[in-house]
Design a protein around this nucleic acid. Structure first.
Lengths: 216, 216
DNA sequence: CGCACACTTGAACCCCCTCAACCCAAGTGG
DNA sequence: CCACTTGGGTTGAGGGGGTTCAAGTGTGCG
């Protein structure tokens, strides 16, 4: 189920968790609200959002299967979460999580490892948002997203995107129009192909990597 | 010394650590190199840098007294670190750190808490870099920096900046010129005062907060 | 079929960047 | 003591990458 604990602990774990389903588009975490629940994604993908009062949005990440949510908080959620499609979630109470960590110290190490990986990804994203061009941002995204989403067995050059262009724009600090135009340019340049809006094929991985690194 | 462990463990801790000094400007961590050492800042401030091949830089944070460095890595450093002025550091070997964590499990919890706080800060910075204007970025920086740097007893409206305008620019995803111009505009607008280049006074905290939140 | 909604494309604009000059304080050395 | 240098900071003019505004093109679903 949760994937990060040994089989022996699985039964104990499942006793504390409550499995639930949420419909597409549901905002199951609201930024700024009391963080009383802790989630683990078991199916589907969510967008993680921070907003400004006037409606500007920044998507700070996408949470796929196996991802933990509600970890990085003091007592209120630092970001909201919305289901991109239908999702299944494991819910833990905050107290239950504490109890879990005391019972399985190895969990604490695992959480630290997860937090560490997310921190590295966040730092990479800061470089992207602060210093890369639109073209470089899209190239970086296309290379990094499959790994971040832990897409199963999709090591090939086929990327299926569960999110809209608007979501990609809010993730990369751009507008929908710029995302669309830039993808078109990468397509006409034979670097990628776009058989359908939700599917992108990498035709020239080396060039894409050069662009992402800022070398072209 | 390190500030995050109990007094009882302090002696044990100091046995494993090697205190050292570095001169101003020294790059004591190189991005991409093997991460064999773990640092704790005991004096001074460092800038944490990620770079692109063509020289573009993004400062992902400033590490002040008490800050841990070398934590958020797999086996190579994800960012470089350079001393803003003369610094003092505690060095641990990676093996020593592992031993330390086994010996004091409470350290693991502490590290998780530190990583969690850094992650929240990184997410806030993503919102800043992706969606805020230059004016909003500077306002946010002036409000958030003193807390992040854990400036002792400087709860007042006096901010002393150990870094240059170029560092601020690389931290906020701007250029030196834009930082300078924007500060000038905030100054003529009576929101801040700048008695010297390294010192900034907040004259109207409420307005500054409104600007930072994107409400003005 | 037709209404949304997502996506694409075009034209004009703007905020920030680039390039350049200048100011100022702190060394440095003759 | 002063000319010279160096590094950080400020200010101005012009240009460009991305945004904004607007229209058009699919495309899935009731």
């Amino acid at each position: 189920m949760c994937g990060v604990v040994e089989d022996a602990d699985l039964t104990r774990l499942s006793e504390m968790a409550v499995e639930c389903e949420v419909a597409a588009g549901t905002a199951f975490i609201e930024e700024g609200q009391a963080a009383d629940t802790f989630f683990n994604v078991t199916a589907g993908t969510a967008r993680l959002i921070k907003s400004l009062p006037d409606g500007r949005r920044q998507i700070i990440g996408f949470a796929g299967v196996g991802h933990f949510l509600g970890l990085a908080v003091s007592d209120i959620y630092a970001f909201g979460a919305e289901a991109l499609g239908p999702m299944r979630l494991c819910r833990f109470s905050r107290a239950g999580l504490r109890q879990l960590l005391d019972e399985f110290p190895v969990m604490e190490q695992r959480l630290l490892a997860v937090a560490r990986d997310e921190l590295v990804a966040a730092q990479e994203q800061m470089l992207l948002l602060g210093r890369k061009t639109a073209r470089e941002r899209l190239a970086s995204f296309l290379l990094a997203y499959p790994r971040a989403a832990s897409c199963p067995a999709r090591t090939e050059d086929v990327i299926s995107l569960p999110m809209t262009r608007a979501d990609i724009a809010d993730y990369l600090g751009l507008t929908v129009e710029t995302v669309s135009r830039t993808l078109t340019r990468l397509r006409t340049g034979r670097v990628i192909a776009v058989p359908s809006a939700a599917m992108i094929l990498i035709r020239d991985r080396a060039t894409l990597a050069s662009i992402a690194a800022g070398e072209v």
